[in-house]
Amino acid sequence: MKMKVLSGAAALGLIAGSASAEGRLSIYHWFEYIPQEILDKFTAETGIEVTMDTYDSNEALLANLKAGKLGSYDVAVPGDYMVAIMKNEGMLDMIADGELANVSNVEDKWMNVAFDPGRKHSIPYQWGSTSFMVNRDVYSGDIRTTDIIFNPPEVLKGRINVLDNPAETLVLASMHLGIPQCTTDRDQLQALDDLVQGAKAYWASFNSESAKDVLVSGDVAAGMIYNGFGQKARLEGANVEYAYPRQGYIVWMDNVVLLKDAPNRANAIMFMDFLLEPENAAAVTNFARYTSGVKGVGPFLDPELKTSPEQNPPADAPAGSFIKVCDEAAQKVYDQIWTRLKQ
């Protein structure tokens, strides 16, 4: 904390001395997702003063922007499906051709993505997967199945955490049943409702922000988690293993977007270019333990990431799926299932 105050004071001094002309940059970001050193480095290179607020879910980001925060931030970092939603809501500004000097650093497979074809509004930040981890001291059997969460072995019953986020938890449940996302088939939706209603008896808690903490502390023996967050749990000493279930798992990508009515649009573009530098993208990856979508990060990466079981699915693992954006009719039923689940 003291360190932060000091670096904040240093940044302020810098502004007062040299940078008042260069101006500011206002970031709206996930909690614990960018290292302070990277922000300090950006300020040192450009003289731009950075301020950052954080949120804890894609939905909270959308809600706060809708409630009047649009126009006070320059960039935000929504996940894939939320980029599509925000684009439909008209919350994103267009990045003109040639505006980003480093756009050629984006990995080819992440250029033409379904949620933002041609990268008109966004650049990759980090990508990863969502499935679950199991404490191997408690259960040593097969964990590459979604049965672990929805039809668990006896020793795991009552010791499971799921993410407190309907999008992720209900999509994993759909994969368990083998039904498509955003389905409007009544039998399938009814089956989904029955499944989670029944499985709730096996779950100890609904927790997203402390998904790692509950695994490390041993409050639960299995829990849904993002792969990088899960790696942090393992590095903190818990004997937990990340699973790539055969039924499928969620793949996601977080993206830096240029917000509509950004007060410092030019600085936002500079920041995006800065994050597309391989060295800086690698620094974020080394901190967050996910995977960057930028070319040439290899030499700067923590060597452990290249072989870690969380980042490297086994050869026979299926491809993961992105979360789809449902239309209003389908979404209404999913909301209803979630409310019934927690009533």
């Binding site: 879910s57 939905e59 909270a60 959308l62 809600a63 409630a67 407190d164 986020n165 309907p166 999008a167 709730k200 779950w203 100890a204 808690s205 609904f206 927790n207 402390s210 999913y334 909301d335 979630w338 409310t339 927690k342 009533q343």
Partner: peptide, 25 residues
């Protein structure tokens, strides 16, 4: 939420979910 595991809604979390959560109602 923190001590009870957020397994069931309370009035507070129900209202919170309508503004911050997926439901957005």
């Amino acid at each position: 939420d923190l001590l009870g595991g957020a397994k069931t809604f309370m009035i507070g979390s129900l209202i919170d979910e309508q503004f911050k959560g997926n439901a957005g109602n």
